[in-house]
Amino acid sequence: MTTVFKRPESLKDTETHYCSGCGHGIVHRLIAEVVDELGIRERVVGIAPVGCAVLAYEYFNFDVSEAAHGRAPAVATGMKRARPDLIVFAYQGDGDLAAIGMAEIIHAANRGEHITVFFVNNAVYGMTGGQMAPTTMLGQKTETTPRGRNALGEGAPIRVAELLAQFDGVKFVERCTVSKPRNVLKARAAVKTALSLQIEGKGFGFVEILSPCPTYWGLQPRVAMRMIEERMEEIFPLGRIKEPAAEG
């Protein structure tokens, strides 16, 4: 018999603290699989955000640092500038990246830092208990938008991938999701493209991943996955927003 699927070496054999059906576990695994496949486990350095994925350094089986809330792209900049031979990625959620860390992500992207950013967008703050995120959908009820998010006064969801794609320093942007097997495999391919781009020294790569938060959406995990397809993808369309430039 041959093994079709087993835990990647880059993921520690440990239980995560994530809720049942949380997308972080899938995204962690995809990154770990690609790190293994590209053979970079011994020269990759990850950055864990503040948010639900704050403990990512307990799960990845390679070097990982924390960063203060939102500052991962600045920390990544320092790492990569000091040690260009390392493969540096930041793993960030929607509050971390698109609220408190908006300045850091925009400027790291605009400088075209040779780093990779994985942005897990679940449209809500998880760690603090389900408050509004910059990517919360209009009408979506959260702890701090009890009547549903209203564009007037609360703003409309921010499309980060489109925002970053405009910068010349940004070489690859794709939005994907983990809603069903086919999409998970596409997300895996995007993770691979982004990390390969860095290995080839081509510039800033960004992958946004729409991910479920069954707990704070108040939905069964299976239903939460359908919610991504039925509602989130309308606001955050899937696909490649910026292609990596052709050779030469």
Binding site: V45, V75, T77, G78
Partner: peptide, 9 residues
């Protein structure tokens, strides 16, 4: 935080 990043590597 860039200093943090350079220092930590």
């Amino acid at each position: 935080n860039m200093v943090f990043g350079a220092a930590v590597v």
